Simulated assay, not measured.
Amino acid sequence: MTSTALFPMTATATPTPAAVRAARLVDPGFGRVFTDHMACARFDADQGWRGLEIVERRPLAIDPACAVLHYAQEIFEGLKAYRTVDGGTALFRPAANARRFQLSARRLAMPELPEDMFVESCRALVRAERDWIPAIEGGALYLRPFMVASETFLGVKPSAEHLYMVLAVSVGPYFKGAKAVSIWASENYTRAAPGGTGAAKCGGNYAASLVAQAEAIARGCDQVVFLDAIERRYVEELGGMNVFFVFDDGSIATPPLSDTILAGITRDSLLTLARGRGMTVREERYSLEQWRADAASGRLTEAFACGTAAVVTPIAHVKAQSGDFAIGSGGPGQVSSSLRDALLAVQKAAAPDPHAWLDRLD
């Protein structure tokens, strides 16, 4: 048994053989190659947080009346650990994920996990599983911290018991082989409404987006972008990513944060990098009709989506019931490529880190 300050580890008795692991890491895809261990903790209203540990990844045994199965009281996060250019290992901005996890918990009437407990659960798991980081372009160890209501009861009330876990997944590029993506602008379905859970990272938001995502796939698109729920005009975010617009004067814009838009950590990082370069940055509402008009006139030169999984992904085409349009040259643009390269350089410790975003584990 080894240990860290908060999460003692009991290693699996049947670790994946090194040769088998190496074969899986050649082309891991995204979200399917799980490591051997996971982090766990439990909460109950009487004892607080307890049972902190790193254990073998295994199926859960839950009661059919478990609260999360009936009332969807659940939240999650997503962050990555990278192999740095000097051979080390680092997490990217885990404290920011910890704070957002607390905000999501507050909105879903769940207990707030202390920031140090969240961060150390991620650190401890990465230390145990660093050999699972793929040595390929775009390779990383994706972490999925999540919390579910685990009390056994039927009745609409906040659960008094919760289970927290962190899974680790070996990943490659999210959009494999795609230099730019096409998106479907949903004018029928909305992702979130004012006063709802749009700013929380909870499973229900993503479940609500799936029918629109299926609609996008049926129309030959990679992703769906949602409009506001009130006027059905203003661009908010994609099914799982924030969105940026680049204009011919070199400025960039992104929809302003609200209780209907998730405060993306990649979004915040790109805004910080752009402002540090002296770029004009606006957080303002932008309508679908204006997007179409600016693309046609050439005022809009680029658009891109961003998030932990996909990092920065250029948008080449937009399809909608009200009319399709292309953006710029249909491929990666200069601004989106430059910002992506700058962000990746920080994540890999190949560039200075003036904002102390890297959490080095070595």
Score class of each variant (00 low, 15 high):
residue 174 Y to G: 14
residue 108 L to I: 08
residue 329 S to L: 02
residue 151 E to V: 14
residue 111 P to H: 09
residue 193 A to W: 02
residue 338 S to Y: 10
residue 194 P to R: 09
residue 73 Q to R: 07
residue 336 S to L: 07
residue 358 L to F: 07
residue 335 V to T: 15
residue 298 G to S: 04
residue 301 T to K: 15
residue 58 R to Y: 02
residue 309 A to Y: 01
residue 84 T to D: 09
residue 131 D to M: 03
residue 132 W to Q: 08
residue 138 G to P: 00
residue 219 R to Q: 08
residue 293 A to F: 05
residue 129 E to M: 03
residue 9 M to V: 05
residue 291 W to V: 08
residue 174 Y to T: 07
residue 297 S to G: 07
residue 87 G to E: 03
residue 114 P to E: 13
residue 249 D to F: 05
residue 179 K to A: 15
residue 260 T to F: 05
residue 293 A to T: 13
residue 222 D to N: 15
residue 170 S to F: 00
residue 264 G to C: 12
residue 13 A to S: 14
residue 24 R to I: 06
residue 207 A to L: 03
residue 284 E to W: 07
residue 201 K to Q: 01
residue 61 A to V: 14
residue 200 A to E: 04
residue 98 A to T: 10
residue 7 F to I: 04
residue 102 Q to H: 08
residue 208 A to C: 05
residue 307 G to Y: 04
residue 20 V to K: 09
residue 6 L to T: 07
residue 125 L to A: 03
residue 161 E to A: 14
residue 55 V to Q: 15
residue 14 T to H: 13
residue 54 I to P: 09
residue 52 L to A: 11
residue 98 A to V: 07
residue 250 G to K: 15
residue 99 R to M: 10
residue 32 R to L: 12
residue 109 A to H: 09
residue 340 R to D: 15
residue 256 P to H: 00
residue 43 F to Y: 13
residue 303 A to R: 06
residue 198 G to A: 04
residue 118 F to E: 12
residue 106 R to M: 10
residue 303 A to E: 03
residue 317 H to F: 10
residue 362 D to V: 08
residue 232 R to S: 15
residue 326 A to C: 02
residue 269 S to D: 01
residue 117 M to G: 02
residue 160 A to I: 11
residue 31 G to E: 03
residue 251 S to K: 07
residue 354 P to R: 14
residue 241 M to N: 06
residue 253 A to G: 11
residue 43 F to Q: 00
residue 76 F to V: 09
residue 109 A to N: 14
residue 83 R to L: 01
residue 350 A to R: 06
residue 268 D to P: 06
residue 109 A to Q: 10
residue 41 A to N: 04
residue 351 A to R: 10
residue 171 V to W: 00
residue 310 A to F: 00
residue 117 M to N: 04
residue 287 S to G: 09
residue 348 K to F: 11
residue 285 R to F: 11
residue 105 A to W: 04
residue 270 L to A: 14
residue 210 L to M: 14
residue 190 T to P: 02
residue 297 S to E: 05
residue 356 A to S: 14
residue 217 I to D: 13
residue 360 R to L: 11
residue 343 L to W: 05
residue 32 R to Q: 12
residue 217 I to T: 14
residue 273 L to V: 08
